[in-house]
Structure formats: C-alpha cells, structure tokens
Design a protein around this nucleic acid. Sequence first.
DNA 1: GCAATGACGCTCT
DNA 2: CAGAGCGCCATTG
Length: 108
Amino acid sequence: MPTGSYSRIYDVVRRVPRGRVATYGQVARLACIPNGARQVGYALHALHDGPPIPWHRVVNALGGISLRGESAARQRRRLEREGVRFDAGGRIRLADFAWRPRRGRGPR
DNA sequence: GCAATGACGCTCT
DNA sequence: CAGAGCGCCATTG
C-alpha cells in the first residue's frame, strides 16, 4: 500500500452503485482531493487486485475509458453488463449514467 | 532532492 | 465536434 491517501479514493469508488459511473474528477472531489483526478487514476492502477473495488465504474470526464488495449475492452464489457450503454463514439452518456451522490452522505 | 511519468481535466483553436 | 496544449499532484527512478 503506497499511502493512506488512496484509502479515501477507494472508499469513494466503492460507493458507486451498480449500473452507474463516476468520473475521475468526481471521485477526487468526493475524496476531498480537488484537482486530484490523476491521482485517482494512479490509485486505481495500483489496485492490481485484492479489495473488491468497482474500478470499472470510474471513467474520464468525457464518459470514455482512459485505459488502453484489452483493459479498456474489459472495462467496457463489465459496464455494459451492468446496463451502462455506450454510444457509437465509445462514450457513455453521463447525463444518464453519471452517479449522483447526495452530498455528505455520512452524518447528515 | 530533482526529473520524468501517468487509468485526468479544462480551455483554446 | 475533434484535436492539441497547459496545469495539477502523487508515485517512481
């Protein structure tokens, strides 16, 4: 484990409900890390395996998959299996599938 | 400790 | 609408 900072990111990603997606920037913000979108991607990459985190529900701000090669195809596959639809451009319509968490969500 | 890298985001062209 | 450039911050060599 690199640092405890990632725990916060994992905690947020774990809250993303099935059939919905969150953007890297959104996760970063929810994890109290403004402008930390890259760190979210970095954290998920380090996720090699172990904790049951729905990393595949995290996409970029354009609603597309930032991964390359087989990894991207695999993520898309999983999302489609959850009901997430992709358009002809391989992008998700965030207006319909973006996760809308309720602020705070914890106490209060 | 500095330089380079990266599963990003926003703005301009 | 698509592509390129710059900024952001943590991890790694």
